[in-house]
Design a protein around this nucleic acid. Structure first.
Lengths: 249, 249
DNA sequence: ACGGTTAATTGATCTTCATCATGTTGTCCC
DNA sequence: GGGACAACATGATGAAGATCAATTAACCGT
């Protein structure tokens, strides 16, 4: 387990970023959703949001609670999951800066309660808006609506890919798939590898890949032997993404 | 196997509907996406679509083919699936009247090729529009954009539910889940039961539930013994949806 | 109504993976 | 730097389900 030495747990990616005012202000313009709104509309849109911070471990949204707000993450990471009736949990995604969660649909359409839970996995700064107000923006700013449609389409495609993987692949393939997906989203170069910038236990990878923590551990050990990944307590880095990609195809 | 006698294969649900002009014209107004466009815009929007028919077995869209069109089904059913590299197939959804498929994103955003395949499972009439033209409608008619966002959100939620099921449940649960989902979408009362209005082989149910045709058959046999479903060659009807629902929870 | 075709069923076997149990090691905190 | 705790690793076992094989019977055409 030589991998474990010189662990990356303390490199900046894993530290809290501060949630400065400047950052919160610039979030809108950096966010894909608002990329092409006209200059003169930025302030008006911006003023409708308010900022909200969460401590690590806080619920951002919670299954069963009454829905109605929409959040965009500025800094930090959060975990999006669904809970089975028996208490087990399926990790659907890890959200980071620019990602959003919550409900867009309001009273008329869709469920009145959140069906997913989002928990801050580090300190998180976000901006937030009520669904109804957000819908007003969508009406007034067609470009935002188009971007929203695009982003939702893209998420839907990812979800469908996941359904395909879970439905028809081995544990090895599913774990490889999850790692690649996370690295594309949260990857950061580190010592010739791609480090996944999020605390990530075996249990959590397992919850994403639809397997058990033990099987996940075995698979990672195997990947390590084949020099495909480095992994330690709470972190994973990809050494050879191409070969992992081949495992899936 | 007394179930099999008096098969429903020939009741109207399974017959082709004709694709009349009147029907095609009314499609827009019945479709959720266009439900609240102003009266005076209907014709303008309508004129941008063109109608396309498909014979049973035709490809409507095909993985790997260059994307760029958007289809709304008027009559008939079609199957939406993804193909694994090894040729196996994951059935993601069964589309029927009012459902749509294809790409909304155009050149700038998203992949240039379809990532899913849709095959007509009966004769299908649809209306179709280029992605770019559709985006123009989204820009001009905010209500359509909102509806599109809502529908995508709803589909995404369904996909996430599916991920949860596939990731953490037994074959029995997954099959029950798939049957319930299909019955909600394609259910039709028939002899005190809810018939699923679509040709549906064990293989296809299996492809949706992420299992093998044999396991699916065993599960259905068991459900039949417990008086939860009726099923024959190519069809399934729910006898006791409540109990099936309990299997999932 | 009668065969023929092919989906569906059922049984037997083998593989994969979840689970349980136990040992190991990184990380945190002093 | 050292001890404690929790995460991780790994071995053994069993259960769920995939796969292979053989039989049955639903539906179709005539």
């Amino acid at each position: 387990m030589t991998d474990r030495h010189n662990s990356p747990v303390h490199i900046p990616a894993f530290e809290d970023e501060s949630c400065t005012v400047a950052l919160r202000k610039q979030l809108l313009r950096k966010n894909p959703l608002f990329q092409d709104i006209p200059e003169n509309a930025v302030d008006r849109v911006n003023s409708r949001f308010r900022s909200v911070s969460f401590e690590k471990g806080d619920y951002i949204i919670r299954e069963g609670k009454s829905a109605g707000r929409f959040y965009i993450l500025a800094t930090g990471v959060a975990k999006l999951f669904r809970t089975h009736p028996d208490g087990r949990t399926t990790l659907l995604d890890i959200l980071s800066s620019g990602d959003y969660c919550g409900s867009i649909a309001d009273a008329g359409f869709g469920p009145r309660e959140y069906e997913e839970t989002v928990i801050a996995d580090s300190n998180v700064c976000s901006i937030s808006i009520g669904s109804t107000a957000f819908r007003r923006i969508l009406e007034e700013q067609p470009s935002v609506a188009l971007r929203t449609v695009d982003t939702l389409s893209s998420r839907l495609r990812l979800a469908n890919e996941m359904v395909q993987q879970l439905g028809g692949s081995s544990v090895e393939t599913r774990v490889a798939f999850v790692l690649l997906r996370l690295s594309k989203k949260l990857g950061q170069p580190w010592e010739d590898k791609i480090l996944i910038r999020s605390p990530l236990s075996r249990e959590e990878i397992a919850a994403m890949a639809g397997t058990s923590a033990e099987s996940c551990s075995r698979t990672l050990s195997d990947f390590r032997r084949r020099n495909l990944v480095s992994a330690g307590r709470g972190w994973v880095a990809l050494v050879d993404p191409e070969s992992l990609e081949n495992l899936i195809a």
